[in-house]
Amino acid sequence: MRQQENKKENFRENPTKLTWIPKVYNYAERTGNLKAEAVGVVSGEKHFPVFEDRMVFKPLTKSKPFSTPLFACAEVFWSWVIDTYFVPAPLYQLAFCRGYEAECEKYYDYGTVSPMIYEEGEHLLNLLEFFRTYPDEKVQIDDYLNYCQMFYDYTEILEADYFQTHRGIAEDLAMQILISVLKGDQNYHYENIAFVCDASGQILRLAPMIDHEFSTCFMFPDNLSRHNYWFGELQRSIEGKPVQPDEYKDFPNEKERRLMEKSATCLHRNLVYIKEHYPEVTASFLKNVSRLKRDLLQKRESFFIRKAKDYPGHANSDAYRIGKARYKDHDEEKAAAFEKQYGGEGKEISFDLMNCLINYEVQEIIEQMERILR
């Protein structure tokens, strides 16, 4: 982590500006496809087009839960914030890939583009793959399930033998965990964290942070009450308020209910653990998050998300149900029913309102984290 911090000092004096001008590509002009098998609870293959300079187009997906154009805005916003204030991160940019939706129906032809995070001859190994290959009695990996809209306990991961004996990588992970709490990531699961390995399988480093789309501050722009509810759930998990008996009785599946009970308090547990075991990481995070809070107050417009030319400006947080029925469940009857119920482009996004919410909520989370970490 110290090496990453030293590298960043040169960038902090002259950070890049947050841009909302989309890049435009044509699918037919791709240099190749990123073929990556998603190894995890939900497996599958992704074939994202790659363009010159190893730039990967990441489309918005018709079946991804609660997806709206602000998922792409979250990727751009948080990659810039992380790279500017904390640690090196690949920068996302809004993008179109003309002809991609016609070729791959389950994807839109708009999304984001970002540089590939590993070099030729390297590959990724996520935490789930790692602990399946190298079991550790401290990590109950067989109990792991991948849910969006849930927070994850990383204390047992950091207690594992590998991280106990590789302090530098453990510090990098601790910083990533703190940043994930800051951005209110509701999908920061064990498959989102990966090692970069060489051809022989030797671990070289922790991969930089990617996948920022499930940031609480950017979710449900079409429904303020849902947005506020989930922001409250984020604050509650950071606070660590004990779960009351039968609080999650509406979850009939016992395993799922226990996971939700753990999610309701685990962010607080993560913060306290990192504060106690990684004081240098905590001090570095607090120093940089203080700068971020100051700039959010003094340079508000520098953080504003903008409506991009030709980019969709409406949100429908339930449209994914149609895509899920059609492309995952392969149930056209269900898809047709959801078309009637949830079809249409949705509600026009109020960027003025969202900018007020994002600025306010990020500051609220910073202050809440500061109270715990200090």
Rank of each mutant, 00 (worst) to 15 (best):
E9L: 15
E9I: 15
E9C: 05
F11V: 09
R12Q: 15
T16C: 05
T19D: 12
E29K: 13
E29A: 12
E29C: 02
R30Y: 05
T31N: 15
G32L: 06
S43R: 14
G44H: 03
G44W: 06
F48Q: 06
V50S: 10
E52G: 08
P59I: 08
L60A: 07
K64M: 11
F66D: 04
F66V: 12
T68Q: 05
P69Q: 06
F71D: 05
A74N: 02
E75I: 05
V81N: 02
P88L: 09
P88R: 10
Y92E: 04
Y92S: 13
Q93H: 12
Q93K: 13
F96N: 04
A102N: 13
A102R: 06
C104G: 00
Y110K: 02
P115L: 09
I117S: 04
I117V: 15
G121A: 11
E122L: 09
R132I: 08
R132E: 12
R132Q: 12
E137P: 02
K138W: 00
K138F: 00
V139D: 02
Q140D: 13
I141F: 09
Y144P: 02
Y144M: 05
Y147C: 04
M150G: 04
M150H: 09
F151C: 05
F151I: 11
Y154W: 11
Y154H: 03
L158M: 07
E159Y: 07
A160V: 05
A160D: 04
Y162H: 00
Y162V: 08
F163C: 08
H166D: 04
R167A: 12
M175Q: 13
V181M: 06
K183N: 10
D185F: 09
H189S: 14
I193A: 03
A194I: 01
V196P: 08
C197N: 04
D198H: 02
G201H: 08
R205N: 06
R205P: 03
R205K: 14
A207I: 06
M209A: 12
H212M: 10
H212T: 00
E213P: 00
S215N: 07
N223S: 13
Y229G: 00
G232F: 08
Q235T: 12
S237E: 03
G240A: 07
G240T: 10
K241Q: 13
P245Y: 05
P245Q: 07
Y248M: 09
Y248K: 07
D250T: 14
K255A: 14
R258H: 11
L259S: 05
S263W: 12
T265G: 07
L271I: 11
V272L: 13
H277M: 11
Y278V: 07
Y278P: 01
A283V: 01
R294K: 15
K299C: 13
E301F: 01
I305N: 00
R306C: 12
P312N: 09
G313C: 07
G313E: 06
H314R: 12
S317Y: 03
Y320W: 15
Y320Q: 07
R321L: 15
R326V: 04
K328D: 04
H330S: 09
E332K: 07
A337E: 14
K340F: 02
K340M: 09
G343T: 10
E345S: 11
E348R: 09
I349R: 02
I349A: 01
M354C: 04
N355H: 06
I358D: 06
V362P: 04
Q363N: 12
Q363K: 14
E367D: 14
Q368C: 10
M369F: 03
E370A: 08
R371L: 07
